[in-house]
Amino acid sequence: MTRSRVECLDGLRALAAMWVLVGHCLLLTGWRVPILGEPDLGVDLFIMLSGFLMVFHYQLRQDNEPWQRPETWLKFWTRRYFRIAPLFYVMLFLALALGPYLYES
């Protein structure tokens, strides 16, 4: 049986996401904490792990979804859209609604 998850990488991606969040909070508040105060490194780590996991999952599905078929591309982009878009639009709404208040703070 082939495993479809790499649990330790989920934890590392969560830590990278928290690093980005804390790093941006530190930038906004002016506090200085070595390493954590550089959210660009957390972004790099998160993107690298995400890219690895995308290729890993593609290789698990390559027999059922060959990359050369247009249906595979459609399935890929549909999955990506519905994974990212809902949270993006919720956060966009919150940013637009609360942005002026947060900026004044």
Results as ranks from 00 to 15, higher is better:
Q59F: 12
A14E: 01
L87M: 12
P66W: 06
E104N: 06
F93R: 07
W67T: 09
G11W: 08
P86I: 14
Q59I: 00
R83A: 06
G30L: 04
V6Y: 01
Q68P: 07
D10V: 02
L102Y: 10
R5A: 00
G42A: 00
P70T: 14
K75T: 15
T2Y: 15
E7W: 03
R13H: 14
M1S: 05
M1R: 01
T72C: 12
M48W: 05
P86R: 09
R80V: 10
L60K: 10
R80D: 06
L15H: 00
L92F: 12
C25K: 06
F88A: 15
L87R: 10
V33S: 05
F56T: 01
G11P: 07
Y81I: 12
W77H: 12
L36Q: 01
R5I: 02
F93K: 07
R32G: 02
A95E: 11
R69A: 13
F93C: 09
A95D: 13
L28T: 01
I47Q: 06
V20T: 02
Y103P: 03
L102V: 07
V22S: 04
V33R: 04
F93G: 11
K75R: 15
L96R: 14
R80A: 09
F52G: 15
Q62W: 12
C8N: 11
L60W: 09
Q68L: 13
T72R: 10
A17E: 00
L49Y: 02
T2A: 06
L92S: 12
G99P: 06
Y81R: 09
L49P: 08
R5T: 03
E65H: 13
I35C: 03
R80K: 14
E71L: 15
P66T: 05
M18K: 00
L36D: 03
